[in-house]
Amino acid sequence: MKRVLLVTSDPEEADHRYVEESLDRARIPFCTRAGTVTDAAGIRDALATGNIDILHFTDSQSARMIPVGCPVATVVTVNELPWDKERGRFSIGHLSDDLALADVICCETPAMGKALSEAVPTPEYHVVRPGVDVDLFDPDINQLPREHLIDFDDESKMLVAIGTFDTPTVLVDAIEMLPEEVTEDLNLIHLGQESNLVPEQIISVLQHAEAILFADLSRFHRHALLHAAAAGCPTFVTDSEPALRVLQDEDLLSSDDPREWADELTRIHTEWRRAGGVPRHPDEELISRMRRMYSLSTAPRVIEHVYDAAGEASDLRKNH
């Protein structure tokens, strides 16, 4: 049985809580949580007991606490990196020195792993996709009525969600390009961090909106995209990386050409009008891909493999 000490900069962060819960509920075979700490002193005290086999740093910020010459295997989860819009790539910066001390690094996508491995070639890299409770969002299992949105909804209009924290310039310009009949039928709802919507309302929006738009790579949380996909909501993004291989090529739009976004909104409006203003059916194929790639049972098996790999890498490191 591997004893895993979790290290985090934020115990309430979703990725950390997922790993913690997976260990506590024995979803990761042959592994148990030895505790959770948030500072270097906690790491030192835990290692001093001799009862720790693996240190798992569940976010990139906590990686700064990796002990030099750590006596046990070290794993770092990196699922958030700044995006350099001018260069069109991830910005790694000071993280490289911290990550170089890890035995294994977990990334959510191959593209992120590739970017990190080019800057920090020493550790092993593994893709670990997060677990999503698809049943919570799937309208066939947990449908939340549109009445949840009564305070800001108008069922005579086409409901479209904006998933970013604000309205990106490319989307502002796209809306200005729309024909008048589309603009008059459009009801835009923000799902960003300032929206003040309760969870039930967010799920209802994702289940009933004709589409959700993520028009700026740097201004949304990737979980929002996964939740939209789990609800079967047509989802459009500016780049393939945050799509996390769930979306299709036709769902990826330009980050700087508002005409693409205007054309897509016009197409959606045409289909909505053709259906008589009746809400769309959920995208069953999208939900199916989410179940296959991001179900709650998938990631723990991958994490078990990561812990095994970290142990082997640690043994090699200590023998050199």
Rank of each mutant, 00 (worst) to 15 (best):
S91K: 12
S117P: 00
S91V: 02
A115D: 05
I92Q: 01
V104E: 14
R129C: 13
L95P: 00
D154R: 07
I105T: 08
L81H: 04
P121V: 07
E147H: 00
H94D: 01
A102Y: 11
F90G: 13
Q143T: 05
G93P: 00
Y125N: 07
P82Y: 07
E108L: 10
D84I: 06
I105L: 07
F152W: 12
A102G: 14
N142H: 14
G113L: 11
A119N: 09
D135V: 06
N142F: 13
D135Q: 11
G93L: 03
P121H: 03
P110K: 06
L116D: 11
V104L: 11
L144V: 15
D84F: 05
E80C: 02
T109L: 10
D133S: 14
M112A: 13
L116M: 03
L95N: 00
D97N: 09
P110N: 11
F152E: 10
R146T: 09
R146F: 06
L99E: 04
P145C: 08
G93Q: 10
V78G: 11
I141Y: 05
I92T: 02
I141Q: 08
H126L: 06
S91N: 05
P121Y: 01
F90T: 11
F152Q: 04
P82W: 07
L144I: 15
I105M: 12
S117H: 15
K85L: 14
N142K: 06
D135I: 05
F137Q: 07
C106E: 14
D133T: 12
K114A: 15
D153Y: 13
Q143L: 12
E147W: 02
P123E: 13
G88D: 09
H126T: 07
P121G: 05
G88T: 12
E86P: 00
V120T: 07
I141C: 07
S117C: 10
P123L: 07
A119C: 04
S117E: 09
N79L: 01
L95W: 00
V104N: 12
D84E: 15
D103V: 01
P82K: 08
V132F: 08
L116F: 03
D135S: 15
S117R: 15
V132I: 15
P139E: 06
Y125C: 13
I150L: 03
P139K: 05
N142G: 07
S96G: 01
R87D: 07
R129A: 14
A111H: 14
G113I: 09
I141H: 04
E80K: 08
P110W: 10
V134G: 02
D154K: 00
K114R: 08
G88F: 05
G113C: 04
G131Q: 05
I92M: 03
R87T: 00
A119T: 01
E147M: 01
P110D: 14
D133W: 12
G93F: 10
V127G: 00
K114W: 06
N79I: 04
Q143I: 01
L95H: 06
D135N: 14
K114S: 08
W83I: 10
D140S: 14
F90C: 12
V128C: 10
D153L: 04
V128A: 10
I92Y: 00
L144Q: 12
P130N: 06
T122Q: 14
V120R: 03
H148V: 02
W83V: 06
E155T: 10
